[in-house]
């Protein structure tokens, strides 16, 4: 209804960083009375809206002055809450839209399916293929599960064997330790010492007896070398009994 024309653009290019020039608007006059009526009504609405804006600004300015600092945090919290609400509404809207899309899609699909021939339809082909693939996937998954189970079994066995060998080794170790301890205790015991002392004594006695016999034989002036039995005996007497140990 009204035409605007842009004129006088860039009128002040030399202005230091300033305005490039305001293009002015020339409004044409409204022709008919009905148009004027609507224009007036619109102007009324506009003025009301602008008045509302100015009023709200005045209100806001008045409110601010006394408790501005205290309220700031509350306002921030409030803003957050309101933003959250807006977000929630948006999300709900999106969800509803998605649901609607899905419903539309399913309806369209249904209609199409009804129309199409069952045997030739691409959709059916796709469907059957998908089904086959799904079956294959399930089968393969079953196989993998079985294999995994087997693997687990093997691992379990290995673990058991390991534990068994460990316990056996432990047993061997204790056995060895025990033996060693026994030996140690035996060597140090009084019994052994007594026996050793006895043995020493006996050896000494035997040595003395040997010497006595030797001297007896030598003193009797028998030619001991001729009699083989005697010879053997004399030679045997020569043995050093301390070496027996």
């Amino acid at each position: 209804m009204e035409k605007q024309s842009e004129e006088q653009a860039a009128a002040e290019p030399a202005d230091s960083g300033g305005e490039g020039g305001p293009p002015q608007v020339a409004g044409a006059q409204a022709a008919r009375p009905e148009d004027r009526m609507t224009l007036l009504l619109r102007l009324r609405a506009q003025t009301k809206q602008q008045l509302l804006e100015y009023n709200s600004m005045v209100d806001a300015n008045e409110e601010r002055t006394p408790e501005q600092i205290i309220q700031e945090k509350q306002i921030e919290a409030k803003i957050e809450e309101l933003e959250k609400e807006i977000e929630e509404v948006k999300i709900a809207f999106e969800m509803k839209k998605l649901a609607l899309d899905r419903m539309q899609l399913s309806t369209a699909l249904k209609k199409n399916l009804e129309k199409m021939d069952i045997k030739t339809s691409v959709l059916m082909d796709n469907m059957t293929q998908i089904l086959n693939l799904n079956k294959l996937i399930m089968k393969l998954q079953q196989e993998t599960w079985d294999l995994e189970e087997k693997l687990l079994d093997v691992r379990k066995k290995r673990l058991q064997l390991k534990q068994a060998s460990e316990s056996k080794l432990l047993e061997i170790q204790t056995e060895k330790n025990k033996q060693k301890g026994d030996l140690d205790s035996m060597e140090n015991s009084d019994k052994i010492k007594n026996i050793q002392q006895n043995l020493q004594k006996e050896i000494q006695i035997t040595t003395v007896i040997q010497h006595v016999f030797q001297n007896l034989i030598l003193g009797s002036k028998v030619n001991w070398a001729e009699d083989s039995a005697l010879k053997e005996m004399v030679l045997q007497l020569e043995k050093n009994l301390t070496m027996i140990q």
């Binding site: 209804m1 009204e2 842009e6 653009a9 305005e19 020039g21 305001p22 608007v25």
Partner: peptide, 29 residues
């Protein structure tokens, strides 16, 4: 600005162009 003024709109449009702010203070706008 030209494209905007071509738009069919019930209100009167005024388009001001500026390279940068601040605007010169002596102009009545």
């Amino acid at each position: 600005a030209g494209s905007m003024l071509k738009e069919d709109c019930a209100s009167e449009l005024k388009v001001h162009l500026a390279k940068s702010l601040p605007l010169p203070s002596d102009v009545n706008r």
